[in-house]
Design a protein around this nucleic acid. Structure first.
Lengths: 155, 155
DNA sequence: GCTGAAAAGCACAACGG
DNA sequence: CCGTTGTGCTTTTCAGC
């Protein structure tokens, strides 16, 4: 199932659910203009085909004592497939790293990190990241504030 | 309400809801070990205090024809407060930009962008981003693949 | 494909421990 | 604070169109 197989009602459903993932099926059906049972069938199909990957609750980091968001650009010593896989596995194991991308350009990986404070983050960079045997260079961008916080796919 | 005011049951609730934001209250209550009504009261309190910011449905980008994820590091000509605000407003208006951070270091902003393909993205960079009167420098990192896709806050 | 009705399950409020 | 109870709504299935 690809975008070509979605009609306008499916697109509407995805838009509504992105904005409010806990909307009841009855309200969703009313918003997209069909009755509840076919609406639920459409949602289930979108889930089964994988277009809907899941439902997440978004938490407020600062209220939970997570005051630092940073991005790390990491360059590896060697870019062999085995090294890329080994470093990927390492990022998966580090709880500070919330998302990681393999990228092109100057560095090899971009890490999106969240930590309690600067001390926690620096300890991670020194003790885990730069200490990792795959890692050659680390450049860090500390965030001051998030100015756009959308996450909605524009469909 | 801060993290200090959360007990172990609240923490469990947040963990469960992060992983599955559409879990029913009955199932959530069973998982955290209390009955449904007090569980729902806790969830409502977490919502009202803002620790729970909202519920989102996560979609699969490639299945929707969004095959390109990139990060742009943008430097402004002048970093006055008015310029920062003007550029922040611009990022909000661009649908390709899904998240934007004000950062320290070499550049001023980091943009997380999603586009259909390289052509769409290059058009955005040339026609919107570098054409913006605030913008001085743009450095782009195209992603090859996402190796860690968590999003769960480690609490 | 959709609609409509019916049964099962859930959310939510009220009350008592 | 938690738990129990009860009501109304939602979900979900199963007909029929």
């Amino acid at each position: 199932m690809l975008r070509a197989d979605l009609d306008q009602i499916d697109i509407k459903i995805l838009r509504e659910l992105q904005a409010d993932g806990r909307m009841t099926n009855v309200e969703l059906a009313a918003r997209v203009g069909i009755s509840a049972p076919p609406c639920l069938r459409r949602v289930r199909r979108l889930e089964e085909t994988g277009i809907i990957e899941g439902y997440r609750t978004v938490l407020n980091g600062p209220m939970l004592g997570l005051d630092l968001v940073a991005f790390c650009m990491v360059g590896l010593k060697h870019q062999s497939d085995a090294n890329l896989k080994a470093f990927s596995a390492a990022t998966t194991a580090w709880p500070l790293v919330r998302q990681a991308w393999l990228v092109n350009g100057d560095s090899d990986f971009l890490l999106h990190c969240v930590a309690e404070n600067l001390t926690t983050f620096q300890n991670f960079v020194i003790e885990d990241l730069t200490a990792n045997e795959q890692v050659d260079t680390v450049r860090t961008m500390l965030t001051i504030r998030q100015v756009k916080k959308v996450g909605l796919v524009d469909i």
